[in-house]
Write a protein that binds this DNA or RNA. Structure first.
Length: 425
RNA sequence: GUGGAUGUAGCUCAGUUGGUUAGAGCACUAGAUUGUGGAUCUAGGGGUCGGGGGUUCAAAUCCCCUCAUCCACCCCA
């Protein structure tokens, strides 16, 4: 404490007790991505600032006040990635990843993102996301498949009860028209309105719709909803997505108040929420973004994707007791005396060579009693005991940590015998 | 960026209106059991009381500043 250095604000160390759980969640997600035919893309942790300004939108909070932006030694403006989609789209365009006429590609990523926000429950400055992007797919089936994969991924990770909130924010034209309609409605509004919402009216009016300020409750209730003003194409698209979701048995609810904070979304948007997460209730979110790819290459491509907040997902699983602890060592080598410790080190190594998770105390200082205590805490099923007596007879004592019995075994074959016994269980 | 709460041992926390060597439980080490764990008992190690400044004969305790954590606003995964 005191003078000892701490991790920077909003960052955290994931300790050995938790990393095992994270690894299992990540493995489950990777398995689902593979099942749906998505390939992993690893993009840089930082990109040219311009990528995010153009891609996410200048008016968004992320770009406006949450980015870690810095100049490198040559004065270029770089930014730690605040989200994954923009980088994926950039890499897609740069490497011509699209297949065939439609430029199809299914890509996933998993890694840390960075946003300069005030830390809070479920909110960190460095946080982890796993995301999937299907580029080159315009059909509503792609939206449905993407949502189905999200549900499969969350279930594979261990989340049991979940439902997806779905909505449509319309295509570019509907959005522009609706934006104008909403702005004029708000300008003509004579009831109560929060200062924030008044300010948002000029920069990002859609966000007024999901204001949580009680002052805005009346306004939000009375305001027009995008969903009710969709163009023919957009409403047909939404209806088709919902039909496919019904057929797939994906649990969802239409939420007309759902509006996402990134500018690039068009038509379908969706979120998975959990009341158990406190104020930061979104576990995952995503949607369609048909006009983003065209900003980075001549050929525009439709796309759908989402991202899961891993910190929140893991937190939820831990909270609900849905995660098992990771397995510790299975065998221990316990020694008495310096000669025995030296031989024990080699014996432990031999066991590890046979693939056995082995606990050994290389300090050589602890009492036998303490060594057994540790071995027990590690969950060892058996222990090999070495002392001067055993060494002189060319033996080791093989002890069953569960039943308590023990018997001598030839030192030369002790590791193999222990491995055989463990495999037999 | 705004508001509220909180910082005492590795962890969870006591510490009465300021009073002398700052405590408990868990964990750790050792002993009881001269080489045998998961129970018990005993002993021990471990703290510049987040940091800095101030008030006072005296500060973990009161005041100011600062850093950090938690919660909410905001934002989003």
């Amino acid at each position: 404490m005191g003078e000892t250095l701490q991790a920077p604000r909003g960052t955290r160390d994931l300790l050995p007790a938790e990393t095992g759980r994270w690894a299992r969640v990540e493995a489950a997600l990777r398995e689902v991505f593979a099942r749906y035919g998505y390939g992993e893309l690893r993009t840089p942790l930082f990109e040219h600032t311009e990528l995010y300004v153009r891609g996410i939108g200048e008016a968004t909070d992320i770009v406006g006040k949450e980015m870690y932006t810095f100049a490198d030694r040559k004065g270029r403006s770089l930014t730690l990635r605040p989200e994954g989609t923009a980088g994926v789209v950039r890499a897609y365009a740069q490497h011509g990843l699209g297949q065939g006429e439609a430029g199809e590609a299914k890509l996933f990523y998993l890694g840390p993102m960075f946003r300069y926000e005030r830390p809070q429950a479920g909110r960190f400055r460095q946080f982890w996301q796993a995301g999937a992007e299907a580029i080159g797919y315009a059909d509503p089936m792609a939206d449905a498949e993407s949502v189905a994969m999200l549900v499969a991924a969350l279930r594979a990770a261990g989340l049991k009860d979940l439902s997806v909130d779905v909505n449509s924010v319309g295509d570019a034209e509907t959005r522009a028209a609706f934006r104008a309609r909403l702005v004029s409605f708000v300008e003509g509004w004579s009831g109560p309105i929060s200062a924030e919402s008044r300010a948002r009216c000029a920069v990002n009016p859609l966000r007024i719709l999901d204001s949580k300020d009680p002052q805005d409750a009346e306004l939000v209730a009375a305001a027009p909803k995008v969903t009710n003003h969709l163009g023919t194409r957009s409403s047909a698209h939404l209806a088709s997505v919902l039909r496919h979701l019904d057929r797939l048995g994906v649990p969802y609810e239409v939420n007309k108040a759902l509006v996402r904070g990134l500018d690039y979304y068009t038509d379908t948007v969706f979120e998975v929420l959990s009341a158990d997460l406190g104020a930061q209730s979104a576990v995952a979110g995503g949607g369609r973004y048909d006009s983003l790819v065209g900003q980075f290459q001549a050929q525009p491509r439709p796309a759908v994707g989402w991202a899961i907040g891993l910190d929140r997902l893991v937190g939820l699983l831990e909270q609900r007791g849905l995660m098992e602890g990771s397995g510790g060592a299975r065998a221990a080598v316990c020694c008495v005396g310096s000669r025995a410790f030296a031989r024990g080190l080699a014996l432990a190594e031999e066991l590890r060579g046979l693939g056995v998770r082995t606990w050994f105390d290389p300090s050589g200082r602890r009492s036998l009693k303490s060594q057994f205590k540790q071995a027990d805490a590690e969950g060892c099923l058996l222990a090999l005991v070495l002392g001067d007596d055993e060494l002189d007879r060319g033996e080791a004592t093989l002890k069953d940590m569960r039943k308590g019995g023990q018997a001598p075994v030839a030192l030369a074959g002790a590791a193999a015998e222990a491995a055989r016994r463990l495999a037999g269980d």
